[in-house]
Design a protein around this nucleic acid. Structure first.
Length: 465
RNA sequence: GGCGGCAUAGCCAAGUGGUAAGGCAUGGGCCUGCAAAGCCCUGAUCCCCGGUUCGAAUCCGGGUGCCGCCUCCA
């Protein structure tokens, strides 16, 4: 496959460091609040990448970290009266629940910062030993950016002169130098280390975790692919790259991938702008797969402008897949290799061209419906379709639900019983050709948001979206 | 100020040199008691100006507009 490397700014053929294997690391969440749609987008993009690589036959080791200690977590703990561990546990659980709801598979590894203090200490020690880090009077340890000849090459910046908004610390050697370790003397949350009690700097955890959990020996790069949101390129990934380079004498990742932002009204969704849309709230109104389908529907590198009308339009598109699944419901078949799968992987293999993949799915659905209209009993064809659906489930991660449940999203049993009862009454009215009565019942159902469809095998219904 | 991204039909969105995928919406047809669903048909010359080329949405130059990173951020 080809991957767009955001450092070289070009699509490159993917060549693994180790034959048949891929190491993929993605920056995960800081667990101090619920995940918003931007977090979901990022998680979905790399979940898709992982699925595609696996479908291509690679053995993928996919790590996504949890930042469970950080100033924001400490502040939240202070406000709520809970411990930082409680806050972190609560939002880690919420993150897992939300991601599962949109079909994001669990990563192979999910290291936590608080469980990686040893790995971080080791890296700090190496950086101190090699002169790439220094300690200041209050015990803080900083990375010396000027000691890295390749600093700023990742994000293609000419100088750090304009990094003037970074907090001024008088003892720092250079403005761009960033904290590896913050000494803590005020009794707040701290961890023991060879450098005394303190907390790790945020950038450090990814480098340290990659080194201790993912990196292979004897390769020119620590891992194959490092991903994250576009806002992490600088300074976060720049700093990670510098740490790894200086501590281990090799580059961190061969390919860097950055996903675009979710925006609202053209502006980046972020907590500081106050325009975040929590995933958990979206999940109240829409099936998780609809959200997955929608957020994955455009190319990962572009910005994604969230808009409820577009979401509904996406839902209608996914509905078609489920109606086809409904037509084939109850049939079992062995999964066979299909031309469809080949085409789908080829589309996705081009730097995750999801638009092309979606187009292939749409075309498959149309021709399938057409063929099933002509010959509903073609067994070989049905088997091929079931295999295609199963490919979509496996690679795209949607179409996995029972189609009847899918169309009854959010309904309680009582309402379902009411609907079923109305349909029985309507069927009886139709039987005696009392169309006025049957149409009145249909209007009533429509008013409830229920769409009716009469078929040779009975009347079915769906919630309208 | 430095660096970067984007601009394609009413809307969403692929395509990066050979005369514009797909979806939603719209209109028409088939099917249906009527519908719904399904299938078929229906729409753009690609922000503007200039250049290169036999040929450009696609390359080059110059504009305009929107967005992002440089502070925590997916």
């Amino acid at each position: 496959m080809t991957i767009y490397d955001s450092v070289q700014k070009t699509k490159l053929p993917f060549e693994p460091l180790v034959e048949g294997k891929v190491s993929l690391y993605v920056c995960g969440p800081t667990v101090y609040d619920d995940a918003h749609l931007g977090h979901a987008k990022s998680a979905l993009v790399f979940d898709l990448l992982r699925r595609v690589l696996e479908a291509e036959g690679y053995e993928v080791t996919f790590a996504r970290n949890i930042t469970d200690i950080d100033d924001k977590i400490i502040n939240k703990a202070r406000e709520s009266g809970l411990s930082t561990a409680d806050i972190a546990a609560r939002y880690t659980e919420a993150y897992h629940r939300d991601m599962a709801a949109i079909g994001v598979r669990k990563p192979t590894l999910e290291p936590k910062a608080t469980e990686s203090i040893g790995a971080m200490s080791d890296m700090i020690q190496r950086l101190l030993d090699t002169g790439h880090a220094y300690r200041i009077g209050n015990g803080d340890i900083y990375f010396d950016t000027a000691s890295d000849g390749r600093y700023l090459t990742l994000s293609n910046r000419q100088s750090s002169e304009n990094v003037s908004r970074v907090e001024k610390v008088s003892e720092k050697r250079h403005e761009a130098d960033f904290a590896l370790w913050k000494a803590v003397n005020d009794g707040s949350v701290s961890f023991d280390s060879p450098f005394g009690p303190g907390r790790p700097g945020w950038h450090l955890e990814c480098s340290a975790m990659i080194e201790s959990y993912l990196a292979r020996e004897g390769t020119p790069y620590a891992i194959d692919i490092h991903g994250g949101g576009a806002d992490l390129l600088f300074p976060h990934h720049e700093n990670e790259a510098a740490q790894t380079r200086c501590a281990t004498n090799r580059e961190l990742a061969r390919y860097w991938m950055h996903n675009g932002f979710v925006t609202i009204g053209g502006e980046k969704m972020s907590k500081s702008l106050g325009n975040s849309f929590f995933l958990k709230d979206a999940l109240k109104a829409y099936n998780g797969e609809v959200i997955r389908f929608y957020l994955l529907s455009t190319h990962y590198r572009g910005d994604f402008n969230f808009n409820e009308e577009d979401l509904i339009s996406s839902k209608k598109r996914l509905d078609r897949l489920y109606r086809l699944k409904k037509r084939l419901f109850g049939l079992s078949a062995t999964v066979i290799e299909t031309e469809f799968k080949k085409a789908l992987l080829e589309a996705l293999g081009d730097d995750l061209n999801v638009s092309k993949a979606y187009a292939l799915i749409d075309e498959m659905i149309s021709s399938a419906n057409d063929a099933l209209d002509r010959d509903p009993k073609d067994k070989a064809y049905r088997q091929m379709l079931l295999s295609a659906l199963s490919t979509i489930e496996e690679i795209m991660g949607f179409g996995t639900q029972n189609p009847y449940d899918y169309f009854q999203f959010g309904l309680d049993e009582e309402t379902k019983a009411t609907i079923d009862e109305l349909i029985v009454r309507r069927t009886e009215a139709k039987k005696i050709k009392d169309f006025a009565a049957s149409d009145a019942i249909r209007d009533e159902l429509n008013a409830m948001g229920v769409a009716i469809m009469d078929t040779p095998s009975g009347t079915f219904w769906e919630m309208q979206g």
